[in-house]
């Protein structure tokens, strides 16, 4: 599904390297999680996968479903089926939610979306996410609480039906009940689309308890330094990143 090979990335502006020889392979249907302290490049990785113009790839490649997407524009990657659920989604004054989603659907198809079907589908999805229907006609994320923004992203995701989902700190800004609801919707989506893969970027194991990753990776200084199962997340939560690195160092020394 997604193969990142030896990826080295720098910030366009100052050429500072933020990802260093990072490799990661995610197979269809797999759920991977990345954990790491602030500033190690987790969110950068999610933006680089999406082709954010602030970053330049110095070395390595990103392949998605067998196709090299390293030089593709962000919108082309999205139309191939990659969806980024942002940590802090942008507010877009003047563009309504329904306009945004309908335009996104139209961009994926030769025929314009049937308006009746679209509204019906939106209503159903909004009901299942316990979202107020008026949010359909409100400007994208304007005046939304942190939780509403995340639900809105999940709404978009369920309408656009991607094959690969990046969840960048899904749990930030969500209360316990909303997090459970959103994770349940993501699980439901995963059941309906068994080949859909996910990359979860998080600081906390609680979101991983709900989304059940197959692999957990620890990132440090722009690279993946350790891979394990969910127990790695529990260990990190117990001992902290410093602690787990100390243990790792002791084990290596022995």
């Amino acid at each position: 599904m997604l193969e990142i090979d030896n990826l080295t990335v720098a910030i366009q502006e100052n050429e500072e390297q933020v990802l260093k020889h990072l490799s990661l392979t995610i197979k269809p249907g797999e759920v991977h999680a990345i954990m790491g302290p602030n500033g190690v490049g987790k969110s950068t990785l999610s933006k680089v996968i999406m082709g954010h113009p602030d970053y330049q790839v110095l070395e390595g490649s990103i392949r998605y479903q067998g196709q090299d997407i390293t030089s593709l524009a962000t919108d082309e990657r999205a139309r191939l089926g990659i969806f980024l659920l942002m940590q802090d989604p942008a507010v877009i004054e003047g563009v309504t939610n329904s306009e945004c989603i309908r335009t996104a659907l139209n961009e994926r198809s030769d025929k314009p979306v049937n308006l009746y079907q679209f509204i019906k589908q939106m209503n159903e999805k909004m009901d299942s996410l316990h979202m107020d229907k008026t949010m359909m006609h409100r400007f994208v994320n304007q005046g939304f609480s942190g939780g509403e923004k995340k639900k809105n992203e999940v709404l978009q995701l369920s309408m656009l039906e991607p094959d690969f989902i990046i969840l960048d700190e899904l749990d930030s800004g969500l209360d316990v009940d909303s997090l459970k609801l959103v994770c349940q919707k993501l699980q439901d989506y995963k059941q309906e689309h068994p080949n859909c893969s996910m990359l979860i970027i998080t600081h906390y194991a609680r979101v991983l308890d709900l989304l059940k990753p197959d692999y957990v990776h620890q990132m440090m200084e722009g690279a993946i330094v350790k891979t394990g199962d969910i127990t790695l997340a529990y260990d990190i939560e117990k001992t902290g990143y410093h602690g787990i690195n100390e243990i790792r160092k002791m084990m290596t020394d022995e």
Binding site: T74, D75, A90, G94, T103, E107, L160
Partner: peptide, 26 residues
Amino acid sequence: LKENVFYLQTKGLKIVTIYQLLSKAF
């Protein structure tokens, strides 16, 4: 705003469509 253009691109909107949408909004 670059972040708004990027956000809409991540939803699969082509850059021309984004300019049209944002121009209208403006």
